[in-house]
Amino acid sequence: MSDQMYVIGINGSPRKRCNTGTLIEHALQGARSKGAETECINLYDFEYKGCRSCYACKREGPGYGVCAIHDDLTPILDRVTTADALILGTPIFYGSANGEMRSFLERLLFPRKSWDDWTSLVEKKIPVGIIFTMGAPDDLMKQMGYEAHLNLIEQFIRDIFGSCESVYVTNTVHVPDYSKFRMRYFDADAKIKRRKEVFPQDCEKAYSMGVRFVQGSQER
């Protein structure tokens, strides 16, 4: 059996190579720098839905703790069970994770929660990181109460997998050329400046997350 770690990145953004995708790739680069095998999965490439509230995963029998839905997400959920670390990335739509990521989390987390004693059914605890990207600047994020919603996502993940840490990336650039769009609420020049000066620091935070996840597992 190989000792090489397997780290999966899950990109919830519809734009594979923009803010969220770039940050996930930096996180996976960090993991690879320490010898891990990595894979990036783009959720928008697949057809699936969220939890159907069928409760099949709570029934007695061999299907207990396993999502009963069979669609494009099924093999992805199977691969997650073999991972040694998981790095999620989602853009923030209306103050929380976007629809594709929320549907993924429903299917990932709900079957793995015992309704007998409210404990996790996951025997293999792994580090999980989540990268939140948003066009809102820090002050607007706090004013709108985003953190309460995002902290709840972190807690749900922590309950199942044992740990979760986050990177908050704010005031991101929406489009390359703001002059072509009706987005006058935002200071386009300030956003472009921040992209050049601050976004590289955000990428370094993501890279460091990937490094730490692999190093931490190697040291255990």
Score class of each variant (00 low, 15 high):
Leu109Arg: 09
Asp72Phe: 01
Pro111His: 12
Gly50Pro: 13
Ile160Lys: 01
Lys49Pro: 08
Lys124Cys: 04
Thr90Ser: 13
Arg59His: 07
Ser103Cys: 15
Gly95Glu: 08
Arg59Val: 04
Pro62Lys: 03
Thr82Lys: 14
Leu88His: 04
Ala56Phe: 04
Gly65Tyr: 00
Gly63Pro: 07
Asp177Trp: 08
Arg79Gly: 02
Cys164Ser: 08
Gly61Asp: 00
Ile130Gly: 03
Asp45Cys: 08
Asp177Val: 08
Trp118Arg: 07
Phe110Asn: 15
Gly63His: 04
Arg112Pro: 10
Ser53Trp: 14
Phe46Tyr: 15
Gly95Ala: 01
Thr90Asn: 04
Glu147Phe: 15
Leu73Gly: 01
Leu77Trp: 04
Met144Phe: 12
Gly61Tyr: 01
Ile126His: 03
Phe161Met: 08
Tyr48Ser: 13
Phe181Met: 09
Gly162Cys: 00
Leu88Cys: 04
Ile131Cys: 07
Arg79Met: 08
Gly61Glu: 00
Glu47Val: 12
Trp118Met: 13
Tyr178Ser: 03
Asn98Glu: 07
Leu109Thr: 13
Ala68Gln: 04
Glu60Tyr: 06
Thr172Met: 13
Tyr44Thr: 10
Met144Gly: 00
Gly99Asn: 14
Ile131Pro: 04
Pro111Ser: 11
Glu60Arg: 02
Ala136Val: 07
Gly50Gln: 12
Lys58Asp: 15
Ile92Tyr: 03
Met101Arg: 02
Pro176Ala: 11
Ile130Asn: 01
Ser53Pro: 00
Val80Ala: 09
Leu77Tyr: 03
Gln155Ala: 11
Tyr48Glu: 14
Thr82Leu: 07
Lys125Leu: 07
Leu121Phe: 00
Cys67Trp: 02
Asp72Val: 02
Tyr64Ile: 01
Ala85Asp: 00
Arg52Asn: 15
Met141Gly: 15
Thr170Phe: 10
Gly89Phe: 04
Asp45Glu: 13
Leu152Asn: 13
Thr170Met: 11
Arg158Pro: 05
Phe46Cys: 10
Ala56His: 06
Tyr178Gln: 05
Glu154Phe: 06
Ile87Val: 05
Leu152Gln: 11
Thr82Ile: 03
Pro91Trp: 01
Ile153Asp: 06
Gln155Asn: 13
Thr74Glu: 05
Met141Lys: 12
Thr82Trp: 06
Tyr178Ile: 03
Glu106Gln: 08
Ile69Met: 13
Glu60Asp: 09
Ile41Asp: 10
Gly145Trp: 07
Glu154Asp: 15
Gly162Gln: 01
Pro62Thr: 01
Phe104Asn: 07
His149Lys: 10
Ala83Ile: 01
Asp116Leu: 11
Glu147Val: 13
Cys57Ser: 00
Gln155Met: 12
Phe132Val: 00
Met101Cys: 08
Pro62Met: 00
Ile160Met: 08
Gly145Glu: 10
Ile69Trp: 03
Pro127Glu: 02
Arg52Gln: 14
Lys124Gly: 07
Lys125Val: 06
Ile41Gly: 08
Arg107Ser: 03
Thr172Glu: 13
Leu73Val: 03
Thr170Ser: 15
Met134Ala: 13
Cys67Ala: 06
Met134Leu: 13
Asp139Val: 04
Glu123Gly: 14
Ile92Gly: 05
Gly145Thr: 07
Asp159Tyr: 09
Thr81Gly: 11
Ile131Ala: 08
Ser96Asn: 14
Gly162Tyr: 02
Pro75Glu: 07
Ser179Glu: 14
Val80Ser: 12
Pro137His: 03
Met134Pro: 10
Leu150Tyr: 00
Lys124Leu: 02
Gly135Cys: 09
Arg79Val: 05
Lys180His: 12
Leu150Cys: 05
Arg158Val: 09
Gly63Asp: 05
Val66Cys: 09
